[in-house]
Design a binder for these strands. Structure first.
Lengths: 115, 115
DNA sequence: ATCGTTCATCGCAAATATACGATAAAAGAA
DNA sequence: TTCTTTTATCGTATATTTGCGATGAACGAT
């Protein structure tokens, strides 16, 4: 109330939701970890580490690429995927900003709000 | 290679993906912000701040409640929603853990991996 | 030119998600 | 009891997601 209905969502919320969507599948979380922790980058290698078909892994890679969290360098018939550090960093900063707001937000517990 | 196919996903990845799924819609991001920034807690109040029908907002609240990020205290016919600080904190810690791993992961760029 | 490797895309099926209006349930107020 | 307020749930429609096998495209090697 007082604050007018936005009729849309904020840019910040749309961005964060989009990043969250890209992270909303266990396979995609694990792909990101595989790309950082292991000396591996090819789609085929990732397929061997996940219980999914090649075409499915390819789709997950596409989704991660869509939001910019990873990038793929074409190497002849192969593609070398890797983390896009700057995008990842930007995403993390926005996530931190969100959670800092959510956690600092004075102890407005249910008890406090009840009137 | 070397590491056997898991045949499933890790517990950590499943948990993080579930939290991310709850955050994967702009309305739900904004609901969390509304609950922390404004002195508001009722479903009806939130409906007025979002371009969505009451039943839709109720569904979003249900999804946030499902993963424990918020809780709802019944107040007669009303329900006072608020952030569940401990769950939110736990989620944030896991997210920080993930991103710290992803960002620190030595500069294994595509260039580095190409062999 | 043909083969093998690697990956993306197509086509399809099943499951989920999103959204709304209508209705039900719960509880205080008249 | 009946009305009002508030929220959840039902039913429905549409869109998106997830997954797979099959196929196609790109390219190096033979």
């Amino acid at each position: 109330m007082a604050i007018a209905k936005t009729e849309e969502f904020t840019q910040e919320a749309v961005y964060l939701a989009d990043i969250a969507k890209a992270l909303s599948h266990p396979a995609r979380i694990q792909i990101l970890k595989i790309l950082t922790e292991m000396d591996v980058c090819m789609c085929g290698d990732i397929v061997e580490l996940l219980p999914l078909a090649q075409s499915t892994v390819s789709q997950h890679l596409k989704e991660l690429k869509r939001v910019g969290l990873i990038q793929g360098d074409i190497e002849g018939p192969k593609v070398c995927y890797c983390i896009n550090s700057s995008s990842l960093k930007k995403a993390y900063e926005q996530i931190q900003k969100l959670f800092n707001q959510l956690t600092k937000g004075g102890s407005k517990s249910c008890e406090t709000k009840k009137k």
